[in-house]
Amino acid sequence: MQDRKKSSSIFNFNKKQQSFFKSVLVFFIPVVAAYTFVEVLVSQLPFQYTIIADYIASEGSKIDIITTGSSQMKCAVNPAFMKEPTLNFGSTSQHHNTDYAIITQTHDKLKNVKCLVLEVSYSHFELPHNAPTFWKNNVYLKYYDVNNFDRTTYFKDKLIFLSRPDIYTKELTNHYLKKKTTSQFNRFGFDENNYNGSFKKSNYDEAKIPTVSSEINTSESLQLFKHNTAFFFTFLDYLEANHINVVLTSLPMHKYYLRDRNENILHRRDSILKVASERYKNVHIFRKEEDTLHFKTSDYINHNHLNPDGAKRYTEMLDTFIEANHLQQ
């Protein structure tokens, strides 16, 4: 029998085991310390989400308008140009299921909201929803207190670095080592220096733009379409029940992006917009997708993202639309 000291502790280990546990503990202390340090550094990064969380904490009860959607929305709405207090929840790759989770779960903090501007891009209905394992769920949980995991959450779900080490390592390196951070967030979490992209690289040269590659989804999926539209109408039901006006918007796209769209996907999306506006009295359509008159090449980061100049123009038009339809009341 191995030597074992009598102990009142629930853990009763022999010397060999104690020695092993101590070695393991000593080994892992630097690992935990290093990780904690990295997590703290990440939390100090200039971050759209922390600013938005602060904005909600300080002025949440006054916010009248929420805008939400993907990166196109994030880049297109600068709340500084809205007359009524506005919050932009738009974030890269964010789909309707995440929008829904955010809107429903922040409802108590944003009780005054009267209008929601929801992005319905050209292929929104034929792209998969964010999975429960979507890496940004950690961010939503930590900063917005929104659980989009479809399960009970734990401490580890708030660890940001672990959710996407590659992205955060790059961010940490750029910010702390290379001092290359270019973002200039205003108090609404909008990046006012968000110009860098393929169009700027081409000096907004109209002759070069056709050669700049763009990413556009052209693959059709009726299965996704069925699933996403059903969810979309559930979302609209919720907004109607809560007396929230809805603006369904499609954001300006560059003419070369418009040219590459799949007609079938486009028609299906448009038919849903039509049904939504007919079925719900609180739903309004603000379509800017094909607006090549007001938006020039110099307003874009790339084919489907506006830069801050384009955002100013789009936001002002949106504000006028909301005001004209009394949707903020």
Binding site: M1, Q2, R4, I10, F11, N12, F13, Q17
Partner: peptide
């Protein structure tokens, strides 16, 4: 931890 604290016997 529980497993080894039970004791090998």
């Amino acid at each position: 931890a529980l497993y080894w604290s039970i004791g090998t016997h």
